[in-house]
Design a protein around this nucleic acid. Sequence first.
DNA 1: ATATCTTCCTGGGGGC
DNA 2: TGCCCCCAGGAAGATA
Length: 305
Amino acid sequence: MPELPEVEVVRRGLADWVVGRSIESVQVLDPRSIRRHSAGTSDFEQRLSGSVVSAAVRRGKFLWLLLDGPRQPTALVGHLGMSGQLLVEESIEPDEKHLKVRLGLSPEAGKPRELRFIDQRIFGGMFLSPLVPTHDHLPGGMGSEISWLPEAAAHIARDVLDPVSTPESLYMALRKRNTQLKRAILDQEVIAGVGNIYADEALWAAKLHGLRSTATIRRPDVERLHTALVDVMGRALEAGGTSFDALYVNVNGASGYFDRSLNAYGREGKPCYRCEAAGIESVIRRDAFMGRSSYSCPRCQRKPR
DNA sequence: ATATCTTCCTGGGGGC
DNA sequence: TGCCCCCAGGAAGATA
């Protein structure tokens, strides 16, 4: 499913294929996909029609197109949920089974005429949101900075791959919370972009158990965690980038990275690679956590008592 | 106030 | 073979 690296690949595709063009027509095929647009389908279609896309922006797993128009500054916000796709395609292509929204784009040489939102499970969606000036509190006494963000995404923290996210800023954010480590890194208001898979991968790489308390976590632990998060996201982004077909703005939910490089997630009952390399037998276990699964090595990720 | 639980949704897959 | 039930996931809103 799409996580930060996949969403970034989509953003780059939108920047290449959609930015600078106008949205000439809008067709909502399933209103559930725009349920976060509270004014409804016809309002969405009318307000979006005729706007010009000036940029593609991402923070965490939220993605938005900045719209230039006569109205107040507005973003078309998209979230892929767990099965969403954005595809740039020719109008002649048959409708996908789970096509939810079709945007007709102004003609441009060599570029397809439609941007389509496809979503099987409908956890994702699109909606219009006004841009609001938002204070981002920067770490380490650097004060605050104003960013113009869609109102609906203004609460999201800085992103894992944002240079402003540092081990120290993560340490400060974690220490402010009183919860379990994995809960905290999945919380988009602590650090944006981490989903269940990368949370488990980063915790494994940092040799930390997700049940550790954020209130007592130490700097060296957080430094390893931050390094692991940046590393795992960075490598996944490279993998997603290399398989990116320039004709598509595509997320297919099965990036090559997932197939080859997972150390913990989905490996229940299989040997922990790190322990194996050290000549020690240890098997990845799966535990229920927050209504989903957590994978960890019982030996090198010590569970707190 | 903060922390945690529930809900939204579909189709693949396991069990029988 | 087919049905039924569970499971996967992010995040908003409800609840404790």
